[in-house]
Simulated scan of single mutants.
Amino acid sequence: MKRASQTLVTYSSSEDEDQPPVKKKRKLPSLSPSLLLPVPTDNPTLHQGRVRSQPHVEGQWVAHIYVSLIVERRSNLHKLLDVVLGEAKVISPTLHDFWPTGEPSKKHELHISLSRPIYLRTHQREGLKAAVKSLSRQFPPFPVSFATFSELVNDERTRTFLALEVGAGHHELRAMSNALTPTLHAIRQKEFYEDPHFHASIAWALLDRPAPSQSLIADVSPTLTEGTLSPSHAVSVPPERVPEADFPTVTQLPEELVRSLNHRYSSALSSTKTGIFDVEEIAVKIGKEVYTWQLSG
C-alpha cells in the first residue's frame, strides 16, 4: 500500500497582486473654534476678589444643603441688621454685605447651612435630591432664632464672615445635619462639622492670601476669631501673607467689631420682638438650580 503523496500548494505572484491595497486612514477635520466650549477660568476680578475653593472639574457639580429664612424689609430684624451693617462697615470698611442692592422690592434671605460644599458627579445629583426629599419627611417645622454675632472663617481661609449664630433651633438643625451624614459618606463627601456653629452670614471680607512658597499646616488659633466654621480643622497658616493687588484684604476682622456688636445689639437680636422664624422647608442648591421640600415629619 502506497502512501498518498503530500502536495505543497503555492500561490503565484499574480494572486498577491490581486489583494486590495491597505487604505490609509484620513484625519478628521478639526472643529471650528466657534463649536468649542470655553474652559471655565477662575477670575477673581469678576467676583470681588473671591476665588474658587476647588478648581473647576468637567462633569462636577457643587451642591449645598440649607434652610432659608425670609427677612421682610419692614421687620424688626431687617431694621436691626441695617443698623448693624452700617456700624460694622465703619469699623471694617472692607466688609461686603449680602443684601441685594438696587432691588428695593426683593426680599432678603438668610441661609443656615446643613452641609459643607458638596462635590457631585452628574449621575449623583438625583440621588442627593432624593435623600434631601426623604429627610424633609422625617422632620416637622420648628422655630429658630438668633442669639449672638460672631466671626467665622471658611475652611480654605480665603474669607472671613460676620455672622448671626443660632440660639433656639440649634438642636433640630443638628439632628437634620446628622441625618445627612450617611448620604454624604455614601458619595465620599465630608459630613458637617463635629461641633457646628449654625449661623447665617450677613457680611464677608477677603483674607490675606498665603505666599505661594509657604505651606505650613497648623490648627486654627482660638484667638483668631470668635468661632470658626471648623475649630479643629487643619488649614494653611503661612508666616507671610501676600496682599491682593486689586482688592483690599484683612488678617481678620477688628477685634472690637464683634465685641462691640454683641455688647450693643445681642439683646435686641435675641429678643422675641426681633424675630423667631419657622423653618418650614429644606433646600438643596446644585449648580445654579435650587430644589425645596416642605418639612412634614
Rank of each mutant, 00 (worst) to 15 (best):
Trp61Met: 00
Arg73Trp: 09
Gln54Lys: 14
His56Trp: 15
Arg74Phe: 04
His78Met: 14
Gln54Leu: 09
His56Pro: 10
Leu80Pro: 01
Leu69Phe: 05
Ser68Ala: 15
Leu80Tyr: 04
Leu81Cys: 11
Ser53Arg: 11
Leu77Thr: 06
Gln60Ile: 12
His47Arg: 12
Leu81Trp: 12
Ala63Arg: 11
His47Ile: 07
His56Glu: 05
His47Gly: 01
Gly49Lys: 10
Glu58Phe: 09
Ser53Gln: 13
Asn76Met: 04
Pro55Leu: 05
Asp82Val: 04
Gln54Asn: 09
Trp61Asp: 00
Gln60Ser: 12
Leu69Asn: 03
Val62Ser: 10
Val57Pro: 00
Ser75Phe: 09
Ser53Tyr: 05
Gly49Met: 11
Val67His: 04
Gly59Val: 07
Arg52Ala: 12
Val51Asn: 04
Gln60Trp: 10
Asp82Ala: 06
Arg50Lys: 13
Ala63Asp: 06
Leu77Ala: 09
Leu69Cys: 10
Val67Gly: 04
Ser75Leu: 03
Glu72Arg: 06
Gly59Ser: 07
Val67Gln: 05
Val62Thr: 14
His47Thr: 13
Asn76Asp: 06
His56Ser: 08
Ile70Trp: 00
Ser75His: 04
Ser68Pro: 00
Ile70Gln: 06
Gln48Ile: 09
Arg52Phe: 13
Gln54Trp: 11
Val57Tyr: 04
Leu80Asp: 01
Gln54Glu: 13
Ser68Leu: 05
Ser75Val: 04
Leu80Ile: 02
Arg74Lys: 10
Ile70Pro: 00
Ser68Glu: 14
Val62Arg: 09
Asp82Thr: 08
Val57Ile: 14
Gln48Ala: 12
Lys79Ala: 15
Leu77Pro: 05
Asp82Leu: 13
Leu81Val: 08
Glu58Gly: 02
Arg74Cys: 03
His47Leu: 12
